[in-house]
Design a protein around this nucleic acid. Structure first.
Length: 931
RNA sequence: GGGCGAAUAGCUCAGUUGGUUAGAGCACCUGCCUUACACGCAGGGUGUCGGGGGUUCGAGUCCCUCUUCGCCCA
């Protein structure tokens, strides 16, 4: 048999990664098959993740990198666990965001979207998306995303648009969508309404203006109000005071004169007025404040509109004569200054205070949002929220980390109706038509199909101009990507409900909660059983990485410099659940050292191992006679079992398994609900095994065994290949490329086999063998010698003499064991090791290890006797302290009486051992230091 | 203003129902280019568990309180 060419010294990730990714694609490794799903009679339980669709105009940033790496780790793990794993990729048309991008392009040509007109603008946007829209999905391939690209979805595709219409019509028919006339959040730059969630709060230092409104019929008396937005006063229709507020009770029912506008408005009593805020008097501007609107409705007040859609003052509706000519057409902030000036001149401005308050801004363009009275489509949320709340309470859905569940419950409990219409051009047009000809006017027509003529009078109809909130379509994502509303869809039957959703907490309300609500509404089932919320990528000053701050990291830069595995490892291993990932955009070398170093280490382990093992056939471990295994073999196999168990513990169960009387059928039991998906703990457990156990101990201990042909060599080869094979499987979900590359080279690998499709390691279940425990004794001796070397600064390469005096406590078994392992100890410590019965005279360094065994390094001239004495005395002193503390505790009658027996007994045993060790150390000090 | 959470090593974080001498990774310090790996090897823990009080034989862990910070909501 010919030997394979030796592996290159350096792992060439730049050449290897694309090659391996191509091989995976060609072999269809990421393709899921509906017919394999156990839900439709197949042999595999499905495991599905739908990718949070990035905006179609997005380019990859480290946040996407983190989000998608987490998903890829989970989906690769599920695939190896034998699931029919499906990861559905796709993009979001991202209404406002995309429209803004194209508007900027148009603006560069000196035009607005209105110059182009709706049809041309939409076409322009479609062309832009067609040209650039696939970019981010291409980029995800470079970081190893194992998504099923044949199912790539797009929220504005014809298929998904069908789902959107179906959802709208069904909700309408159920009475859950309605047309509402109320004050909503309006962005004067984007020229659209926004949902509550899209109008984000910024804490700002503003001003609180105190303005006097003269009381009519009581000269000299005035009511002073405090407002942050004096420009809205032109639309004031009343002043409100709290009915319980003694200060103003006599004025209820009277009138005041509205300054500037110079007209009479009433003083009303309403609990909305907060006696403790400002002066306790609040001006009521129903058309320009949501709370005032409610007050206005309660008191049947007029609702004059004095600010237009672009934020300029004017007499827009029912405002006859309220806006003075000099303010007409003026921008709202300019008008604020001007009005304050006018009031200052007239003496009606009483004072100005600085004021901390939260101001709503458009989440897309950061413009200050203007409350605006208008007609919008709303979704009635309370009935939708009920099952979504119950699901989390029952445990049908878990949210990780746990603390977000409280936030979710709190939001859903106080949910408000959702404004879903947007005055944009880019999106799903509201499927509502109006007939202007019918007499009397007909009700609106809500339809799944386009309507051309009025079903009542046959006249032409016009479609509602608005489009739907982008989040309305993404809220259907788990359904629509799997074929809903087509009840015959194979994917829907095979893969819905999906399993885990991985996203950032910022869109818990925007997206996650709405998907859950719509999932229950349309299927009666939760869309997934696990919501995993991960942290944010931040720079070293803990600022969120962002384009505008210029502190971002391009994941593709990282893959070019260190490879995709290095990127993935660094992100996964460095991220506690829900915790932010801190990286330094100024120093990629340092930031990604962990991933780069680990990849190199893995490569070197593989290089060494494959070279020494050779390509001759290797026995499967099961075929190796147990008696042929050395203590080191047994030890590494037991460590492997422990590592597998630890990885499984950290990753937790894939699915909930506890039957429950709810629509979902299965719920998380408390013991497992918050237990899994600790990806960093899993990664660390796997890393610790391969690096600190397999490489540092096992490989080092068996070098000579591989040089001599024979049964022992074959046993070592079998164990080595088995352990490394299992280690590569364990690590594959995090670092798929380098593990696949090495795994392919293991002896006996058949063509067409892929690690990506290999089975997840299973512990052998062999109980901790005696031989494995005995190897721990060997390790203790080695560690003691190394510590002596370190403490005495003896160069690691220098051959030394080591004497071991076994404790006689076990009747000589330990002595036999150590005699058999002398060669291993010698190799691992670079020493001539001997067993002795007596401690020789002369200068030597000493260590006492478990059970009283002594390790002696007689190195006259190599060690500093003074230093060694000091060290030993220090150790004795430390021991004394601990003995004292423990004795004190054991002398406490209450402790002995009340603490569990086990705890006390354990304490006594430890005390005894400490005392033994102290005696030995004191002896050493006496003989070595003569004191 | 309401709610939730956090505060443990230089940094990011674990620490299960209270029970040995509080841990991990990275960073750091010391010694080494020891024939797979200096992107490495060997050794080293550097801590008033935010402050104060309480419960308990025993508190990082439970209770109260204060401080600081973060997130969500209004």
């Amino acid at each position: 048999m010919t030997s394979p060419p030796p592996l290159p010294d350096r792992y060439d990730f730049a050449a290897t990664e694309p090659e391996i990714y191509r091989a995976w694609l060609d072999a269809g490794c990421f393709d899921a098959h509906a017919e394999h799903s156990s839900r439709v009679g197949g042999e595999r339980q499905p495991y599905t993740i739908v990718m949070p669709p990035p905006n179609v105009t997005a380019i990859l940033h480290v946040g996407h990198g983190l989000n998608n790496t987490i998903q890829d780790v989970i989906v690769r793990w599920a695939r190896m666990r034998g699931a029919e794993a499906l990861w559905v990729p796709g993009t979001d048309h991202a209404g406002i965001a995309t429209q803004n991008v194209v508007e900027k392009l148009v603006a560069a040509e000196g035009k607005t979207r209105f110059d182009l007109g709706r049809a041309a603008f939409v076409q322009r946007t479609e062309e832009f998306v067609a040209r650039t829209g696939g970019t981010i999905l291409e980029q995800l391939r470079a970081i190893g995303a194992s998504a099923d690209w044949s199912r790539t979805a797009y929220t504005l595709s014809p298929e998904l648009s069908v789902a959107v219409r179906e959802a709208f019509v069904r909700l309408y028919e159920r009475g859950l969508i309605y047309r509402g006339h109320r004050v909503i959040h309006w962005c004067p730059r984007c020229l659209t309404s926004l949902s509550d969630e899209e109008a984000e709060f910024n804490d700002e230092t503003g001003k609180l203006y105190h303005i006097g409104y003269p009381v009519e019929g009581q000269p000299g008396r005035e009511l002073v109000i405090a407002t942050t937005r004096p420009e809205t006063m032109l639309g004031d229709v009343a002043l409100a005071v709290n009915p319980d507020d003694e200060r103003y009770r006599d004025l209820i029912g009277h009138s005041v004169r509205l300054p500037i506008v110079n007209r009479s408005i009433p003083v009303i009593a309403d609990a909305y007025a907060d006696p403790t805020f400002g002066t306790g008097v609040v001006k009521i501007t129903p058309a320009h404040d949501a709370n005032d609107f409610e007050v206005g409705r309660r008191h049947s007040l007029p609702m004059p509109v004095v600010i237009d859609e672009t934020g300029k003052l004017g007499e827009i509706a029912d405002a006859d004569g309220r806006v003075p000519a000099e303010l007409n057409g003026m921008d709202r902030f300019e008008a604020r200054e001007r009005i304050v000036e006018i009031l200052r001149t007239s003496g009606e401005l009483k004072k100005i205070e600085t004021h901390q308050h939260a101001v709503r801004h458009c989440y897309r363009c950061d413009t200050v949002v203007e409350p605006r009275l208008s007609d919008q489509w709303f979704v009635k949320m309370e009935p939708l929220a009920r099952p979504a709340l119950q699901a989390v309470r029952d445990g049908a859905i878990r949210i990780l980390p746990e603390r977000w569940e409280a936030v979710y419950v709190n939001w859903l409990t106080n949910i408000r109706d959702w404004n879903i219409s947007r005055q944009l051009w880019w999106g799903h047009r509201v499927p509502v038509w109006y007939c202007d000809e019918c007499d009397p006017p007909q009700d609106i027509i809500v339809s799944r199909d386009d309507v051309r003529e009025c079903p009542h009078c046959g006249c032409p109809v016009r479609q509602d101009e608005d489009v739907l909130d982008t989040w309305f379509s993404s809220g259907l994502w788990p359904l629509s990507t799997l074929g809903w509303p087509d009840e015959q869809s194979a994917d829907l039957a095979a893969f819905y409900p999906t399993d885990t959703l991985v996203t950032a907490p910022e869109i818990l309300f925007f997206w996650v909660a709405r998907m859950i609500m719509l999932g229950y509404e349309f299927t009666g089932r939760a869309p997934y059983h696990t919501v995993y919320l991960h942290g944010t990528a931040r720079d070293t000053q803990h600022r969120k990485m962002s384009k505008s701050l210029g502190n971002g990291i391009d994941p593709l830069d990282v893959t070019k410099l260190y490879g995709a595995d290095a990127l993935r490892w660094t992100l996964i291993a460095g991220m506690g659940m829900g915790a932010d990932v801190v990286l330094d955009p100024e120093d990629l070398d340092k930031s990604f050292a962990a991933g780069r170093n680990f990849g190199t280490k893995l490569w070197n382990i593989g290089r060494f191992l494959l070279d020494r093992v050779g390509s001759d056939p290797v026995q499967p471990l099961a075929a190796v006679d147990r008696g042929a295994l050395t203590r080191a073999d047994e030890w590494i196999l037991s460590r492997l079992d422990a590592a597998i168990a630890e990885c499984d513990r950290a990753l937790g169960p894939l699915w909930p398994t506890t039957p429950h009387d709810s629509p979902d059928g299965l719920v998380w039991r408390e013991s497992e609900r918050y237990a899994g998906l600790k990806l960093n703990e899993y990664a660390e457990a796997a890393r610790h095994f391969v690096w600190n156990e397999l490489a540092d101990w096992y490989l080092e201990s068996l070098k000579s065994r591989l040089e001599t042909p024979g049964a022992d060599r074959e046993a070592a080869r079998a164990v080595l290949v088995h352990a490394f094979d299992q280690a590569l499987r364990m690590l594959h979900p995090v670092v798929p490329f380098v593990t696949e590359s090495l795994w392919q080279r293991l002896p006996g690998r058949a063509a067409g086999e892929f690690l990506v499709r290999a089975s997840w390691p299973a512990a052998r279940g062999a109980k901790q063998s005696r031989a494995a425990q005995e190897f721990e004794q060997v390790r203790e001796v080695v560690l003691a010698v190394r510590q002596i070397r370190g403490d005495n600064a003896v160069a690691p390469g220098k051959m030394i003499e080591v004497l071991v005096r076994p404790s006689g406590a076990d009747g000589g078994e330990l002595r036999t064991l150590l005699e058999q392992e002398l060669a291993t100890i010698g190799r691992l410590t670079r020493s001539e090791t001997r067993i002795v019965d007596d401690v020789p005279e002369g200068a030597a360094a000493h260590a006492v290890i478990g059970g009283g065994t002594e390790v002696i390094v007689p190195l006259a001239g190599l060690i500093d006797v003074e230093k060694e004495c000091a060290r030993l005395r220090g150790e004795v002193a430390e021991l004394e302290k601990q003995i004292l503390s423990r004795e004190g505790r054991l002398n406490n009658a209450k402790y002995v009486e009340r603490a569990p027996e086990q705890v006390v007994a354990n304490d006594r045993a430890i005390l005894q051992e400490m005392k033994t060790k102290r005696e030995q150390l004191v002896d050493k000090v006496r003989s070595l230091c003569g004191a």
